[in-house]
Amino acid sequence: MVAMTQLRVGERAKIVDLSQVNDLVKRRLLDMGVTEGTEICLKCTMPLGGPFMIENCGQCVGIRRHEAMSIQVKPL
């Protein structure tokens, strides 16, 4: 189990733990179908500690780096 920030661009992983994430962010991710057990793919990252773009079932979501840092994933 690693933090999402450990993934390489293009790598797929399963989300294991979201409990450390800000509540509002968690709700939004849930709205978009991203929750524990969801399979995601890291699409790209922005420079200078900018946001991460992840994909799940063909839909893309942007989140901040420190949020990604508190999401625990299992690389596939």
């Binding site: 962010v25 978009m32 979501v61």
Partner: peptide, 11 residues
């Protein structure tokens, strides 16, 4: 207030 950011990127 902490700033938060989540955005959906439509096709």
């Amino acid at each position: 207030e902490a700033s938060v950011f989540v955005v959906e990127l439509p096709p």
